[in-house]
C-alpha cells in the first residue's frame, strides 16, 4: 500500500554519481570469475577489509595496498569440482567458506589462515546434495541437503581454528528449503523459503519449526534474502528471479512482505521494480516458455539496500523501504557486469565482471 502512493523516480534522476569508483582489482590468472565477497582478515596485528575472488578452480584473497591498489595475499587451488559460490561468515575474521559443485552444491569447504603454524589452509565442512547454505553470525553455517527419503537442515559451528564443532539439526519442513536468511533483531530466529513458495521460521536454539506461511502463487519462485523483526511482525525481503510477469506481480525484482507469525497472514509492504528500459524478456522455448525472465540475474541485499545485475548488463541499486531504484551502473565499456555484492556494509559495492575484474564503488 505504501509504495503505490509513492511517485516513481524518473530514470533521469538515477544518478550514477551516487556510486563512486574507488578502486579496481584484476585477477589476471582467473579464467572466469564466479563470485566475489568482502571479508575481514588480520595479519601482523592489523585487521583489514579484504576482498575474496573465486574462479571455478581457485579462490584468491586480496588485501588493500597504498594508492588504491590491491595485492594478492594467497590463492587456494581446487581440483575437479568447480567452485560455484563464496559463503561469507558474518562477524568473523580470517575465515570464509566456499561451495563447490556442478549444478548444485556437492561440498562446502572452509578457507582460513592458521596462526598455529602460520599457514593458509582449507578443510572440508560438509558433503551431500546441498540445496542451500548460509553463513550465520557466531561462526555458524546452516545448510539444507536432500537424500531420496528425507531432508536435513543442519547447523555446523566452526571454531576459531576452523574445526567443525558439534552440529545441530533443525526440524525440516516437508518441502525443500532453497534459501535461508537470519532475522535481524531476533538472534534465535531463522527464516527460509521453500520450493512450494512458503516462508518457514525456526527457533535456532531448540531446532523447532515454528511456522510455515504461504507466500501466495502470485509471487512464484520466491527467494528470501533478509528478514527483520519489528513490532510483532516479520518483514522478509524476497526476490523473484523467475517470476511470471502478471498484473499482480508486475516486474518486481524485490518485495518486502510483512508476515504476522501469529496468524500466518501476510501483506505486501513495498515492491522494487526493474528500472524502465531494463524489463525482462519472454522465454520462447523450453520448460519455461511463456515465462518472463525479469532481467534480474543475481544480487545481494544488506540492511535496506538491494543490488542486482540485470540481463541488460547494468547493475541496479534499490532502496527497499522506498521501493524504488536509486542508482544504476550502466554496462562497463570493457564488459557487462556479472556480479554485485555489498561489502560488509552498504557503503561499499563490489561489482564484478566475468574476466575477473572487480570494481569497488563507494555508495
Amino acid at each position: 500500500d505504501v509504495v503505490e502512493q509513492l511517485t516513481p523516480v524518473p530514470l533521469d534522476d538515477l544518478r550514477e554519481e551516487s556510486l563512486q569508483l574507488v578502486s579496481k582489482l584484476k585477477d589476471c590468472s582467473s579464467s572466469c570469475a564466479v563470485d566475489v565477497s568482502a571479508v575481514w582478515w588480520e595479519a601482523a596485528g592489523c585487521r583489514e577489509l579484504c576482498v575474496v575472488t573465486a574462479s571455478e578452480s581457485s579462490v584468491s584473497l586480496w588485501k588493500p595496498l597504498p594508492a588504491a591498489c590491491w595485492g594478492r595475499v594467497y590463492t587456494w587451488l581446487f581440483g575437479e569440482i568447480p567452485v560455484i559460490q563464496i559463503v561469507p561468515l558474518p562477524d568473523t575474521c580470517n575465515l570464509v567458506c566456499i561451495a563447490l559443485g556442478e549444478l548444485e552444491i556437492g561440498e562446502i569447504r572452509l578457507l582460513l589462515y592458521s596462526s598455529e603454524n602460520d599457514s593458509f589452509k582449507q578443510s572440508l565442512v560438509k558433503t551431500g546434495n546441498i540445496k542451500a547454505v548460509l553463513g550465520l553470525k557466531g561462526r555458524r553455517l546452516v545448510s539444507s541437503s536432500r537424500t531420496v527419503q528425507e531432508q536435513q537442515v543442519e547447523i555446523v559451528s566452526l571454531s576459531e581454528a576452523g574445526r567443525s564443532k558439534d552440529g545441530q539439526t533443525l526440524m525440516p519442513p516437508e518441502e525443500t528449503v532453497l534459501a535461508f536468511a537470519e532475522v535481524e533483531g531476533m538472534r534465535d530466529a531463522l527464516v527460509g523459503t521453500t520450493a512450494v513458495n512458503s516462508v518457514v521460521v525456526w527457533n535456532l536454539k531448540t531446532g523447532q519449526l515454528l511456522r510455515k506461511m504461504h507466500i501466495g502463487y502470485s509471487y512464484p519462485a520466491s527467494i528470501c534474502h533478509r528478514a527483520y523483526s519489528d513490532a510483532g511482525l516479520l518483514f522478509v525481503v524476497l526476490s523473484h528471479p523467475h517470476a511470471k510477469e502478471s498484473e499482480s506481480c508486475g516486474n518486481a525484482a524485490f518485495r518486502v512482505i510483512a508476515f504476522n507469525p501469529t496468524t500466518a497472514r501476510s501483506a505486501a509492504v513495498t515492491f522494487s521494480s526493474l528500472p524502465p528500459g531494463h524489463a525482462g524478456r519472454q522465454v520462447p522455448r523450453g520448460p519455461r516458455a511463456g515465462f518472463v525472465i525479469l532481467g534480474y540475474l543475481e544480487g545481494d541485499v544488506k540492511d535496506a539496500s538491494a543490488a542486482a545485475v540485470l540481463t541488460s548488463g547494468a547493475i541496479a541499486v534499490w532502496d527497499l523501504l522506498l521501493g524504488c531504484c536509486v542508482a544504476l551502473l550502466p554496462p562497463d565499456p570493457a564488459g557487462t557486469w556479472a556480479l554485485a555484492r555489498w561489502a560488509t556494509t552498504t557503503a561499499c559495492l563490489l561489482a564484478g565482471q566475468r574476466d575477473g575484474t572487480v570494481c569497488l564503488y563507494r555508495y
Partner: peptide, 23 residues
C-alpha cells in the same frame, strides 16, 4: 499494514510459537 489485514499481532510471537510447536 493494519491489524485488520494481518489479524491480531503479538509482540511475543516467537516465545508463544516456541511454547506451542513440537520439539
Amino acid at each position: 499494514c493494519s491489524e485488520s489485514d494481518l489479524g491480531p499481532i503479538s509482540l511475543n510471537w516467537f516465545e508463544e510459537l516456541s511454547a506451542e510447536a513440537p520439539s
